[in-house]
């Protein structure tokens, strides 16, 4: 053991005046290990086939005024609501200062009649209620998240509860008057 102890001590002294070669060996090994990590991290990101499936087309013809439909886009629910005149007016009348996440209604729609939202509560990812006529729609007539009690208005903006942001608007475009493509 005595021998081993001296060797240890000798090594410790060696470390204080580390050779270039040891540093190079350790440095390069570290760089190599870090480089190996990248493919594994990237491996878990969405693959090419998943990325390719990122658009959904929706036919709006069957949706009547006051009705809403839920479609799937990237595995998430997307709410498409055909708002009534009253709902549009209520949403437009809200003062920005009353909003936790200020945004005008006009900035959230392409045509006032059609509201398109990612149906995922910005708090912790539950799907808010309010799509069906029988659902509770919260205090502001929009959506209500049952998980932790967030209330959204008729523009999908957060009004009350723990959610920090408005319901997100996905990228979408009107292909014609009655068809939208999400994504």
């Amino acid at each position: 053991m005595a021998e081993a102890a001296t060797a240890t001590k000798g090594h410790a002294e060696g470390e204080t005046r580390r050779d270039f070669i040891y540093l190079a060996a350790m440095g390069m090994s570290a760089v190599g290990a870090a480089a190996v990590a990248w493919p594994f991290i990237s491996f878990m990101n969405p693959s090419a086939d998943v990325l390719a499936l990122s658009t959904t087309e929706v036919d709006l013809k069957p949706v009547l005024e006051g009705m809403a439909i839920t479609v799937t886009w990237r595995g998430k629910p997307v709410f498409v609501r055909r708002r009534t005149k009253a709902e549009v007016d209520t949403a437009a009348a809200v003062k920005l200062t009353d909003l936790p996440d200020p945004e005008t209604d006009a900035a959230r729609v392409k045509k006032p009649e059609w509201l398109v939202l990612v149906g995922v509560c910005t708090h912790l990812g539950c799907v808010p209620l309010g799509q069906k006529t029988a659902d509770p729609r919260g205090d502001y007539g929009g959506w209500f998240c049952p998980c932790h009690g967030s209330h959204y208005d008729t523009s999908g903006r957060i009004r009350k509860g723990p959610a920090p942001n408005n319901l997100a608007v996905p990228p979408y475009a009107f292909l014609d008057d009655t068809t939208i493509r999400i994504g």
């Binding site: 990237s42 491996f43 990101n45 693959s47 090419a48 086939d49």
Partner: peptide, 29 residues
């Protein structure tokens, strides 16, 4: 890591491996 993209079902196993080879980032590696 491979198990994260592999599907142990006779109808999908072969294709899931080929999906790893073709579409998953660095899956071939």
């Amino acid at each position: 890591f491979l198990a994260m993209h592999y599907t142990p079902h006779t109808a999908f196993a072969f294709e899931s491996v080929e999906r790893i080879m073709r579409d998953v980032n660095y899956g071939w590696l």
